[in-house]
Amino acid sequence: MGLEQKLGNMGIVTMSAEKAINWARSNAIWPMLFGLACCAIEMMSTQASHYDMSRFGMELMRASPRQSDLMIVAGRVSRKMAPTLRHLYDQMPDPKWVIAMGDCASCGGVFNNYAVVQGVDEIVPVDVYVAGCPPRPEALIDGILKLQDRIKKEPLTKWN
């Protein structure tokens, strides 16, 4: 059987550029390899073979912010780390998204003190908050799927 039979005579498929680009964006999010505390252990197991984040188009954790689209803030952000985190965020190319993973990154968690930023949304804009201390890999994957849904619905006028 030749290729012609397999593909059939499909001719031209038309769709909006908005939809096509959003589809491409949402299914190839490359997260940044960036863990701050114990949540990073769950993030690693999400990435590893048992939960396998690459099923959702995230096979690559990039060690450089210049190659990544998504920053998963995994852990509490100390006041000393905050400028570095913002610096990394600024280095990421647009379009970029942020997931606050766990209670500490979302609102400070149990660390209601002078040393820890009370929610990473004080320094970077957060798209999805994942609750849990730490969240299980399923919860993080759910957060990522929520983010993908959100990216798919992003109108052209809101693109960066």
Binding site: G108, N112, Y114, Q118
Partner: peptide, 12 residues
Amino acid sequence: HPLLKENPAKVE
């Protein structure tokens, strides 16, 4: 100096 007792225990 954050550990002095006159500082509040919680920030938020």
